[in-house]
């Protein structure tokens, strides 16, 4: 495996220390890392999955609306960030690996390094209470 860029290594280090759930993906959308808080929401440990290719995300969690209908990828903040390299935010449900439907809010932003290199994206997400 080639070495990850230093910006991505440091992002993983940061994510590893954070209490908020974090997803880290490369420019193609492959899931490079998710932290302990994300494990709690997704219902599966990173040590069980390792990095996840973009086409296999759906097996880790299923984004849905309140009725369980599958959401198109382009509606997800992280996919939007990967498409246009701009921050994005949104709320939706996921069906996690333990079969629970959870409302989450996601803030995604691109990771761009020196001097002007697009390296991927980070998504912070948390459980949201219905008001």
């Amino acid at each position: 495996m080639p070495q990850q860029p230093i910006e991505i290594i440091l992002s993983r280090q940061l994510a590893d220390c954070m209490k908020v759930a974090v997803f880290l993906v490369d420019p193609a959308g492959n899931l490079l890392f998710y932290n302990e808080a994300a494990e709690g929401i997704l219902g599966i440990r990173f040590s069980e999955t390792g990095s996840v290719p973009v086409e296999e995300w759906a097996s880790v969690f299923k984004p849905t609306d309140i009725h369980g209908n599958h959401l198109p990828p382009e509606g997800l903040p992280l996919v939007q960030t990967l498409s246009n390299r701009k921050p994005a935010q949104g709320s939706f449900y996921i069906d996690n690996r333990r079969g629970k439907r959870i409302l989450i809010t996601v803030t995604a932003f691109p990771i761009e390094g020196r001097p002007d290199t697009y390296l991927g994206a980070m998504a912070l997400f948390w459980k949201t209470e219905l008001s």
Binding site: M1, P2, Q3, Q4, I6, I9, R12
Partner: peptide, 8 residues
């Protein structure tokens, strides 16, 4: 190694 700065 692939997650270690300077490895390459």
């Amino acid at each position: 190694p692939d997650w270690t700065s300077g490895y390459e």
